[in-house]
Simulated assay, not measured.
Amino acid sequence: MTDEDSARLGLPLLPAGQAQKEVWHNEALALLDLAVQATVEEIDRNAPPSAPEPGQCWIVGSAPSGAWSGHAGAIAGWTAGGWRFVAPRKGLSARHLSSGQAAICDGFGWKLGEVRAAQVLVDGVQIIGARGAAITVPTGGSTIDAELRACVETILIMLRKHGLISS
C-alpha cells in the first residue's frame, strides 16, 4: 500500500491533476466489486482455475502459483480485464458459496464457519449465552437422592436460562 491507496482495502486513490482518472476510478470500482459482500467459489486454492467467469472469486492458498503468485491469502477475482486481487486484512469477510458459511480473515489466515457472539437470539429470545459455572456431580453415599435432585434441578435451570427448554 502507498499514499496513493486507501487504508483499508488498498483501493487506488486519484491524485490531484491525475490524467486518465477513469482508469484509476474503474480499477477502484473493480476491486470494490470483489471485496464488498464477497462470495468465493473455494478457499485455499493455489492455482487459478482454467476457465473462470467474470465476477467469480477465490481465496488464494498459502502457496499460490501462476497468475496468483505473490498473492497468498488474497481474494482473487476474475474480471474482463483479467485477475484482480484484494489483499487479506484482519476482519475482511467473504461468503463461501457451496457451504454458505462465512470466511473471516483473522490477520493470519482465513477461518471458515467460526461464529463469535456474546449471545444467540432466535425471534428475540436468547438461546445461547455465556457459559455458566460447572454443575456438581453427585458423589454417592447416604445423600445421593438429594444430590441427584439438586444436580438435575441445576441442569434444568441452565437449560431454561439458555432457552433450550421452556420455563
Rank of each mutant, 00 (worst) to 15 (best):
A38D: 09
S65D: 08
G61I: 00
A38T: 06
N46K: 01
N26C: 11
A47W: 04
A51K: 07
E42H: 10
G66S: 06
A16M: 13
S6W: 00
R84Q: 10
L34I: 07
I75N: 08
I43D: 03
Q18R: 14
A76E: 07
A51Q: 09
S50K: 07
T79C: 04
V36S: 12
P64D: 03
P12T: 03
A74Q: 04
A47T: 10
L32P: 04
W78P: 05
A80Q: 14
L31E: 10
G70C: 09
V36G: 07
T79V: 02
G82N: 06
T79N: 06
V86Y: 01
R45A: 04
N26H: 15
E41I: 15
A67F: 04
V36H: 11
A19Y: 11
E41C: 10
A67C: 08
A30E: 09
G77R: 04
L13F: 02
H71G: 06
G77E: 10
G55M: 02
W78V: 09
I43W: 05
L13A: 05
D33S: 11
D44A: 11
I75F: 13
A7H: 15
Q37K: 09
S62N: 11
L9W: 02
T39G: 13
A47G: 09
T39C: 14
P15G: 10
P49T: 02
A51Y: 05
G82D: 10
T79F: 04
H71P: 00
E53F: 12
A7P: 15
A72N: 07
L11I: 08
H25S: 11
F85A: 02
T79L: 06
G10H: 00
T79H: 13
P49Q: 03
A87I: 14
L31R: 09
I43G: 06
T39Q: 11
P15V: 08
L11V: 11
P64M: 03
G81F: 10
A74N: 15
A30K: 08
L13I: 08
A80S: 12
L14I: 13
H25A: 15
A19C: 12
L11T: 06
L13P: 00
A87N: 09
G61K: 06
N26V: 12
V40Q: 00
W78H: 01
A63M: 10
P54E: 15
I43V: 13
L31H: 14
A7E: 14
S6Q: 01
S69G: 14
A87Y: 10
S6I: 00
W78A: 01
G10R: 01
S6G: 11
I59R: 02
A76T: 03
V60K: 01
S50A: 12
T39F: 08
A19Q: 14
I75D: 12
G55E: 05
P48F: 00
Q37D: 15
P15M: 13
W68P: 02
G61M: 03
G77V: 01
A19V: 12
G82Q: 06
E22K: 10
V40P: 07
L14F: 14
L34N: 09
Q18S: 13
T39M: 13
D44Q: 13
V40F: 01
S50L: 07
R84H: 08
P64S: 06
T39V: 08
